[in-house]
Design a protein around this nucleic acid. Structure first.
Lengths: 116, 116
DNA sequence: GTTCTATATAGACATCTATCAATATATAAA
DNA sequence: TTTATATATTGATAGATGTCTATATAGAAC
């Protein structure tokens, strides 16, 4: 498979399963950025995410199954880290796109929702 | 906002709304690749996607609201094109990541689902 | 005006999934 | 082995959303 080739329906399906399902949730996107900063264990991530520990484990499993994060045990703790630098690279490109969009919109019409 | 700064919870929310909700569906991901190839109208996209025209319009609206695609009317047709080259750039980085993952897994354990 | 074609919207419904509480598993320490 | 801590899994539920049919809107041709 080359990137110049037109993408097939099957490859789109794989992209969707690995990436879109992977990052398709606010908490998981946040998790990716948090573990990209430095490896963190589940307890720490739970404190940062405002959801229960089982929910965090659930999200980490989804990320782990897709190779978006790596898990490494240290005693009773398990430390999660970013699975591949390309993840952050792509996210930062998209981040710059979003930043421009927000600026265009004047941070009003489509801005931050109050709570969620 | 700089990309070196640690990402805030609000910015994660924006990223999620613009990007993850945007590409968080197989059909929309496919639409992005299709209009990235060249501008296409709704009828053409409907023929390529195996869903009804209202469903395609629904997806296009979601992409359009986020600036992921542009819409331009030509007579009664409306042609959609890619909203920003960075979208494709980021998607191709993720695509190469997925390609590696598939190769690692031997295209078996987490391969293409039969139907959906 | 009417008619035809292209696209968008509204409303209903089924499926998916994020979340929780409860419980299980695993490692370490005593 | 027992106890304590850290993480994972299970099962249930509520909310979100992709899809459809039916209908509305918009432009072009007559």
């Amino acid at each position: 498979m080359t990137l110049n080739q037109i993408i097939s329906e099957d490859e789109v399906a794989l992209m969707h399963r690995y990436i879109c399902e992977g990052i398709g949730d606010t908490k998981r996107l946040r998790l990716l950025y948090l573990v990209a900063e430095r490896p963190r264990n589940v307890t720490e991530l739970t404190e940062l995410l405002d959801v229960t520990q089982p929910t965090v484990s659930h999200h980490l499993r989804i990320l782990r199954e897709r190779g978006l994060v790596n898990a490494e045990r240290d005693g009773t703790s398990i430390y999660y880290s970013l699975g591949d630098p390309r993840i952050l690279e792509a996210m930062n490109i998209l981040r710059s796109f979003v930043a421009d969009k927000i600026q265009e919109a004047g941070s009003t019409e489509y801005g931050v929702r109050s709570t969620e």
